[in-house]
Amino acid sequence: MSGRDVVLGRVRRALADVPGGEGPGGPPVVRDYRRVHGSRTTAETVDLLAGNLADYRAIVHRSDAEGLPALIGRLLAERGARTVVVPPGLERSWTAAADVRLVEDRASSTPHELDAVDSVVTGCALALAETGTIVLDAGPDQGRRRITLIPDHHLCVVRVPDQVVGSVPEALPRLSPGRPLTWISGPSATSDIELDRVEGVHGPRTLEVILLAGGAGAG
């Protein structure tokens, strides 16, 4: 008998008390929790996102499309970044004003090569205001998961208000489970020393988020 048959057989015997007529959809689950906590205007939701990102030590900037290239250029220069990895679908104009060497996100790059890169600039799939979270789905402007993991500095552009949702329940329907997702809430951190939060372990130790007003479609 295979391990599968053994385990499934045990499960079925263990559930002898469950009435035969009860389908996998039962008993019903009452979902009377909130879709979103509190009511806010769009601007207030964006402000909440900014506040919660900052609360977990992400550095938040605001910009419009016109000022974005200069802002990205300035932030990379302040950081002293010389090499920056960018996903293939990132708007070329975003990094046009940056005095850096751009490294393409390629399947053939090794983790060691990425380790030598100073910064990464990406877009995102969406952002959650209530939790201060940005979500990456490996889309064309975000790239492979590892490029936002190995460099020590991540610059992430969120188009507001289009890409901002209020809450976890609002986020999930907009995300595709078939894509590899990375939810990021602040820079990497640990609570492992005396249960106190310390920022900066294996992931990027500096997370900068640019809230780009008037993002695609918003005019």
Partner: peptide, 20 residues
């Protein structure tokens, strides 16, 4: 951890070509 959200949550479904 008493956080609104933990710093990183990863989700994956099987394998993805060229990523991971």
């Amino acid at each position: 951890t008493a956080e609104r959200m933990n710093p990183y949550t990863s989700t994956w479904t099987g394998t993805t070509d060229g990523d991971g």
